[in-house]
Write a protein that binds this DNA or RNA. Structure first.
Length: 571
RNA sequence: CGGGGUGUAGUUCAUCGGUAGAACGCUCGCUUUGGGAGCGAGAAGCAGGAGGUUCAAUUCCUCUCACCCCGACCA
């Protein structure tokens, strides 16, 4: 490709809205342009990279036994109603009607479509297992798109779905995909962590995210170096706060303006473990509930929502708190709450003696509270604490908080869809109909592309790994007005192409050397070959048969013969 | 959806009641050519949209739309 013919070009300024490195560089180097929030044009350079990534994914999946198909983008809305997902998905569904008033959903994920396809066949256990996947544009009406290509409303996704006659066989495929994904990401130059995660609206019981560590990412997880878990599900061991000390007399203590467990513990001269944090929430149906955790912990609303069994929890407003507790925010406690307010106790509250709780009276706290005496022993303790940095993980090591970009994930679906969708069954060897055991597997291509840039760049521009670079060699032609230099550059350009190497040839005349070098660094192609009067002229003493080669990720310039360069590139 | 902010040339910004200006970019010419060159000339704007106040609105007010940030939510 001649640079003078390439659509899209480099630019010095970035739009003021771009804050991420990947967004800025991809914009400046001419890979992408924004249409509206969360919807981007991929320009020739950008598309070439995405296609490289796509080809690698396809190769590895095919090798792993999966088969590519394509589904319509418009999904009959009735299918989504069949699994109740019209109301349960986390992103706003976009719907559209045709001229017959038939309602469609713009596909954001395709479980229902795939199951609908599969049930069109009378499949038996002999046809199982199989794994089908597709590359297709996904539509998600995100509340807030952001970060260039990191969170889009429209993006190319690889989504795969596997069908099995047993959990054991599914587990084999799950491991197969874990290995395949690891290989795919390795090939595109990423080393994501495999993080245990929540299934969210996809459904099923367990899943793993592939997360590329980066401050630009939105996935938060915890690790001890061996254990990796998303913050929503990270487990950790409780330090033992149980005590068998004598029960003391319950007492209200004034602590004017003292809010927050740290300050409170200090003021009352008790360990933080003895304090209790009580938070009031309002459910989507308007019910008020209270959730209590031991001081030092925070509440994971995600977990709590599931325990309460509602769709949404909102922090109760100051007015509601005042109405329910009779006190200002900060003094809510577990004693003397109205009967209709159900209290959920986290397990961290158990086994304590003489603990503190808010007095439900402004400026007052109650101390030396005990279950069984001052309030009934709760029927059940729950786990809705969120992990925090420094907590002890399941391996006995301290947990460290990390952030990253979720480039892929794999889900166990089990019978989640096959049980909800009529006829999603196969005939087993015993002649009986049984639901499929399923899994699904996704990779976001644009996000993967952005993640690569996010981790592979310097102050001058992008540094593409060879496997996904839009071109392998960038010929920088200087002195293009000199016909002998130009001819030499053309000659090398054609020779490389004849070897099947993808070349971008900066053939512009009248552009300064500095500008061309800056553009080459910005675009980030792995090998740069400079051809100029200096390298070409016989009078300069420079051997004519050597090429001036510099790798994007190295500092030194080397002089190589054409054959030597070829050998390096093709190795 | 809650809080905050921004919409003026392709881009980054200035102007602030009296019909718009710079830099970069773009076009042309000359001079340049190994790390974003110099000089000169030029093109480029219904000031996001609608309404209101005013003799007069890019400027003030209202509404609306779009975008950004924080939060909430979440592949």
């Amino acid at each position: 490709m001649k640079y003078s013919r390439l659509f899209g070009k480099t630019i010095k300024d970035t739009p003021k809205d771009a804050s991420l490195i990947s967004h800025k560089l991809l914009y400046k180097a001419g890979y992408i342009r924004e249409s509206t929030a969360g919807r981007y044009y991929l320009l020739p350079l950008g598309l070439r990279v995405q296609q490289k990534i796509q080809a690698i994914i396809k190769q590895e999946l095919d090798k792993a036994g999966a088969q590519e198909i394509i589904t319509p983008i418009l999904h009959p809305k009735a299918l989504w109603e069949e699994t109740n997902r019209t109301s349960s998905v986390g992103f706003e569904l976009m719907t559209i009607k045709d001229r017959n008033e038939m309602e469609f959903v713009l596909g954001g994920t395709a479980e229902e479509m795939i199951v609908d396809l599969v049930r069109k066949f009378q499949l038996s256990y002999k046809n199982l297992p199989f794994h089908i996947y597709q590359f297709s544009t996904k539509f998600r009406d995100e509340l807030r798109a952001r970060g260039g290509l990191l969170r889009l409303r429209e993006f190319l996704m690889k989504d795969g779905y596997s069908f099995h006659d047993s959990e054991e066989d599914f587990k084999r495929e799950y491991q197969n995909m874990m290995d395949t994904y690891t290989k795919i990401f390795e090939r595109v130059g990423l080393t994501p962590q495999i993080v245990e995660a929540d299934n969210g609206y996809i459904g099923g019981e367990y899943s793993h995210e592939f997360v590329v560590e980066s401050d630009a990412g939105e996935s938060r997880y915890f690790t001890d170096g061996e254990y990796f878990a998303h913050e929503d599900i990270a487990s950790f061991t409780l330090d033992n706060a149980s005590s068998d000390e004598e029960m003391k007399g319950v007492e209200d203590v004034e602590g004017k303006g003292i809010i927050g467990v740290e300050g409170l513990a200090e003021y009352l001269k008790i360990p933080v473990e003895k304090t209790t944090k009580t938070i009031l929430f309002e459910t989507d149906t308007g019910r008020i509930i209270a959730a209590a955790v031991r001081g030092g912990f925070d509440i994971n609303e995600e977990k709590l929502v599931k325990i309460v069994g509602c769709r949404l929890l909102k922090l109760a407003s100051a007015e509601v708190v005042k109405k329910i507790t009779g006190a200002k925010v900060g003094y809510a406690g577990v004693l003397n709450l109205p009967k209709e307010v159900k209290i959920y106790f986290d397990e961290s509250c158990a086994n304590r003696r003489n603990f503190e709780t808010g007095a439900n009276r402004t400026n007052f706290h109650t101390i030396n509270v005990n279950f069984g005496r001052d309030l009934p022993q709760p029927e059940q303790f729950y786990d809705f604490k969120i992990a925090k940095e420094g907590f002890i993980g399941p391996n006995g090591q301290k947990l460290v908080a990390k952030k990253g970009i979720e480039v892929g994930n794999i889900f166990q679906l089990g019978f989640h869809y096959s049980s909800k969708m009529k006829g999603a069954q196969f005939i087993d060897a015993d002649g009986k109909k049984k639901p499929y055991y399923m899994g699904c597997y996704g990779i976001g291509l644009a996000r993967t592309l952005a993640a690569i840039v996010e981790v592979s760049n310097d102050d001058k521009g992008i540094i593409w790994p060879e496997a996904v670079a839009p071109f392998m060699v960038h010929i920088v032609g200087l002195d293009m007005d000199d016909s002998s230099v130009k001819n030499e550059a053309e000659r090398v350009y054609k020779l490389l192409q004849a070897e099947g190497i993808e070349v971008l040839f900066d053939d512009r005349s009248g552009v300064s050397a500095g500008e061309k070098f800056a553009d080459a660094d910005l675009i980030g192609i792995p090998y740069r070959v400079v051809i100029s009067k200096k390298t070409h002229s016989t009078s300069s003493g420079q051997a004519k048969d050597k090429l001036e080669v510099k790798k994007r990720n190295e500092k030194e310039t080397k002089f190589l013969t054409f054959e030597e360069l070829l050998k390096i590139i093709q190795s």
